[in-house]
Structure formats: C-alpha cells, structure tokens
Design a protein around this nucleic acid. Structure first.
Lengths: 334, 334
DNA sequence: AAAATAATTTGAACCGGTTCAATTTTCCTG
DNA sequence: CAGGAAAATTGAACCGGTTCAAATTATTTT
C-alpha cells in the first residue's frame, strides 16, 4: 500500500542504502544518482516511515508533554509555547493529561516511555506520596524537564517564583490598608498554590497578622469552585476585606458570585488573582506569569538535554512574577 | 540500556517468540512458562518498545489531532474530550496546531502520516485553495474524522449546526425588536463563522432587512480583535442596536471595550456570542455548543473507523446549537 | 597501460518487536 | 512401550528504515 524504501530501491534499480543515504543528505553520492533518487521520491510521493526510522536511530522526533488539564488557560498557553518550539525542531508532541490524578500521571509517563519519546516535559502533581517515577526518569537518563522543581531531584526545571508572587500580592494588600485577608487556595497538588499561600502567611505574620482559618479555602480549581468560595463569603456575617485567589479562574468565579448577588468588587471585597489570563475582562489586579515563555523555555531546555547528551548539566530557570495593579483592590482607611 | 525482549529471552532461556506470545496473552503456553515470563518481566521491569511493535503490527496506538489553536477554549475543551476517549482505548494523542496556516496544516498531517498514526482528527481550515490533502487521506484510506464537513468529500465528520445557531440568534434579536444588527465575523478560514453569517443574512433578508457593510466586521478571532471591533463601534456616529459575535471570546472583547469607555451592555449595545465558554462571568446571551461531547464523538467515530476496517461507512454526526438567553440583549420598542 | 588512489555504490547486519509454519515435547491409547 | 495426536515451544522471516565495512567503478599518477 504505502511506498517503502525497498519499493523505491527496486524502481530505481539502486540499493536501499543508497536511497537512504541520499535522502538523509549524506555525502559521497554522485550528482546523477542523487537526482535519480530525489526525482523518484518526489514523483511517487515517498514519505519515510518515521516509526521504522525511530527503531534504528533511537530518535523518534517526538516529545511528551504531561500536564494536568489542557482546559486551564495556564496550561493551554504553556502548551502552545512548547508546540511552537517543538515545531521549529521538527518535533511533534504527545499531549497527556493527568487530570489531577497521580496514578494517571505515572501511567502517562510510562506510556510515553514505551513510545520512546526523545524527551519529556512534566508538570508534576505535588503529593505526599512519591516522586519515584520522576527519579526513575533520571536513573534511566531519559531527557526531561519539569515545570517546578521536585525536592531532592537534581533535574532541569523551569519554574515561577511563586513565593515572591505571593509576597507581592500580600504586601500590596497590606499597603492598601487591608488587615483581614482571605485566601482561596488551589488543590493540594499545586506547588504554585502552596508557595503563594506560604508566602502570604509569612508576610502576614511578619506584620503580626495571621490568615484566619475560616477565611482560608482549599481545593479551588475551576470557575465553579470560585463561585462556591464567593457564595460562602457572601453568607458570612463577617468577611475579610480582601481575598487572594490562587489563580484568575478562581477569582473570576468569585467575581461571578458577587455580581450575581448584586455585590461589587472591589467595594464589597478586594480581589487579587494570579496568571493574568487573556480572557479577563474584569479589571482584576493580578500577577502576570509568563506562561507562554515558560512553555518555550521548557521545550528549549529539553532540546538542550536531548541534543546535548546525558552529561548535559541540569538547567534551572526561574521566571519572575509581577504584580499588575488594576482596579480590584480598594484602599481602606482604618 | 533498556531491556529488550531479546534480553528477557536470554535471561529466561526461552525463545523471544514465547516471551512475545505470553505477554500478548496468546494461548497455547503452559502455565509454567507463562508464570516464568510474567515474573521475569515484572522483576526486571520490562516495558515493550511500542515503536518496534508498531513497525510490525502496523498499529501505533497513536492518533493525531490537528486543530487551529489550543489556546482557544473551544479547542481546548474539544481536545479534552478527544483525550478522554483516546485514553479509554489506550491510545495517545499527538497534538498539532495549524496556527491558522494552511501550509502548516498540510505539514502537520504529513508529519502525522510519517509517524504512522492509526487515525487522524482534523479541524480543517476553510480556504479557497484546496482540500487535496484531505482527499489524499481518503485515497490512502487512512482513518480520519473531520470537524466540519468538506464539500465533495465523502468522509466521516462531526459538526455543529452553525447555520441554525446563526438563525436562532438572529431571530432572537428580531423578536426583541432589533432592526439594526451588526456582525463580528471570525477569520475566513472558519466554517462556523461563515455559516452563522450566512444564516444571519438569510434571516434578515427574509424580514426585508440587510446586514450593513459598515456593521460587518471580519477576522475577529482573539479577545484583542473583539476589543478592536468594540472601539470601532464606539467611534461610530450611528451604531447597530445589536451585535452578533462569531464567538464568546470576541464578544468578551467587545464587552471589555465598552466597559472601559464607561458604556454598558446591553444598554448601549445588545450582544450575542457563541460557544458558552466556561470562563464567562458576564451574563452574555450566547449559543451553547457541546464542544466536549463533540471531542468525544470525534474520537469515538475515529476508533470506529480504525477498528472497523476500511469499509466502515462514513459517519456524520451533527450537534445542535442552542440559544442560551441571559442578560446581554435588550428588548427594544420602536 | 598498469598501478595506485579516490569516489561511488552495495550488501548484510541491526533496531525490537510479531507471526506462523515447523519442530519438539508431552500425553494418551491400544 | 510403540505410535499417533495434542500441546508447547521455537526459529526464521518480516516490518522499513540506518549504518558501515567491503566491493566496485572511476580517476590519477607514473
């Protein structure tokens, strides 16, 4: 059915090694045969079988990207960055989603390995359990880059300075006079969320303040979760004057809940998010995260590993997070 | 480095065909050898090389998904649906983005073919040029399913009744008394946009009305484009009373433009979008599109083709679009 | 024009699996 | 316990490429 290199060899009367050589631009072939091969390949529309090639060269021109959920703007933008760079290198990317499940993450990585990807980009779930599967990658010396470092694992990674982002927003709120601050954290599997929360706590306690338990929410991930948090806040007798949301999506949910009750942001609640997503139309004060650039950096770092061989030193790239002040934070005068 | 089936054969003292047979659950092996193989595989952590397997079986357990831009919520949700079903079948998906470029689309499909995917899902760009590459797929009898039919190509597809969606929104506006209607269309490569626009024109002309050229915009794709359209409208002396946007993202852009000028939706402009995206917090009247379900349907149809062999009849699935009335359309009394 | 050298081309082995006809082993039966 | 059938195992070919030492052909050199 499909034309193979053997067919081409038969048709041109040349050896398959000759065909292979010419097609891979190796030199040592006469101009005459070179033309003959090229013409025949062109004429019959020969497309080399990358699978077969991969088997002998050990390079599949394929990388795996394991993320949590493509539906989240954060990841879709990151993915776009990865794709962009992969394309430049003639690589194709396998998209795998862990759907926030630790076992799925492991399985996906396993599947990628069995498909012999040349490298992996993983946005690992943070969990108490184990990072064995990641240490394994290192042990097997499979090129890989992580989104976010993993304690004790000496690997390449790209991450954001989430702690500093958390610090910035908290200080911003303090500067604007807020003393009662709430926090809508993400899932416990999110490193970013944890860091931001930790920073928030640190800054508050440095000012003799604390995050009150009833103003601290957990597991906020999607818009609906944000709406839920918003509802809970609305139902409270006493409410924090400001809420830091783990990301813009959650913040958007809070905005939605408040708006649907006729309450207003920032008059009734000051709000801060993270990510600075494109689809934001609400003037939300947030923290911009160079997601797209991070995706590109992840891919570039990975290709560095792939082409640099197993002794390529691990690279660590940290992107800054930057507060973007808009109109969702009120200045309160005590 | 990596353990192969040959290694395993040597270690157990069995033939590689035995190892292969046991591991693939073929019968005709004694319980004793079966155990021996299984234990050895387990103990040494043997993972079959899918590349090698793919070469001989012709099945790579891999499908290709070619979309325009993963960053668009429409596609990310569709992708999620595809992934979900692919996962159920033990398949992994190659994500390819055409980035709205016809040539890139062709190249991506080519790349997928050279990687011998078992099937393809393509959201093709609509262009004057050619659909040769799609007809080629048919000719080569590569299993594939399209998002949206292509004229003259008898293939499986999943599509939305975009014409009807366009009809619904236009009639809704007419019912609410609007007579001066504008349309922010998407890129000319979007079939959905074209259909919606066509329906709008048809309905209007059936009512003796027409879409005025100065109220018809083209190439609106991202939020920024919507903002642009909004600005243009604001700058006009005379403005339509309602605007239909090709999708929610564009509508969101218009909202943003209006809000930033202190104008209000729907008081200053009635607005309708398409997609009913999750991240919407503005009470936008829109048309809900079962994107996630479509993604699943695409995948299921594809697997039907893959496992059903080349004579599987082409399937056509059309999803309805459904108007969701919220608060972005004013009732005007003339 | 023969010998030496350089330029091309080729054939066989290999990558890591699957497949299946042929062979070997085991089990029954008379 | 020989002989035949059934069960289990194996070996070789194949999938479609790449690689490289060896063979062939062309070009110089003397």
């Amino acid at each position: 059915m499909k034309l193979t290199i053997n067919d081409l060899a038969k048709m041109t009367g040349l050896a398959k090694s000759t065909i292979s050589g010419v097609l891979n631009n190796k030199d040592g072939f006469s101009e005459k045969t070179r033309q003959k091969v090229l013409e025949a390949a062109e004429q019959y529309g020969y497309v080399p079988n990358e699978i077969a090639r991969g088997l002998s060269t050990k390079y599949t021109k394929t990388i795996g990207l394991v993320i949590k959920d493509i539906t989240n703007p954060f990841y879709s933008k990151l993915t776009k960055g990865v794709q962009e760079v992969a394309g430049e290198y003639g690589y194709t990317v396998f998209l795998c989603s862990s759907f926030e499940d630790h076992r799925t993450e492991k399985e996906q990585i396993q599947a990628m390995l069995s498909r012999r990807v040349d490298g992996l980009i993983v946005a690992p779930l943070l969990e108490e359990v184990t990072f064995d599967h990641l240490f394994d990658l290192k042990a097997k010396s499979v090129p890989f880059v992580l989104l976010g470092s993993v304690p004790g694992l000496d690997s390449s990674y790209v991450e954001f300075d989430d702690y500093d982002g958390g610090r910035q927003v908290t200080e911003h709120l303090l500067e604007r006079g807020h003393r009662s601050i709430g926090f809508a954290a993400g899932l416990p599997t999110s490193r970013a969320s944890r860091e931001r929360l930790r920073a928030c706590r640190d800054v508050l306690s440095a000012h003799g303040l604390a995050l009150r338990a009833e103003f601290t929410f957990e597991g906020a991930q999607e818009l609906a979760d944000g709406v839920e948090v918003g509802r809970k806040l609305i139902a409270m007798k006493e409410r924090p004057s400001a809420l830091i949301c783990f990301d813009d999506v959650v913040a958007l949910g809070v905005v939605k809940a408040f708006q649907s009750e006729g309450l207003r942001i920032p008059e009734d609640l000051s709000l801060i998010g993270f990510d600075d997503i494109d689809l934001m139309i609400f003037p939300l004060t947030t923290v911009s995260i160079p997601t797209y650039e991070a995706g590109k950096a992840l891919a570039r770092t990975l290709f560095g590993q792939i082409f640099g061989g197993p002794d390529t030193p691990a690279q660590r790239i940290v992107f800054d997070e930057k507060l973007v002040v808009r109109q969702s934070v009120l200045t309160v005068t005590n």
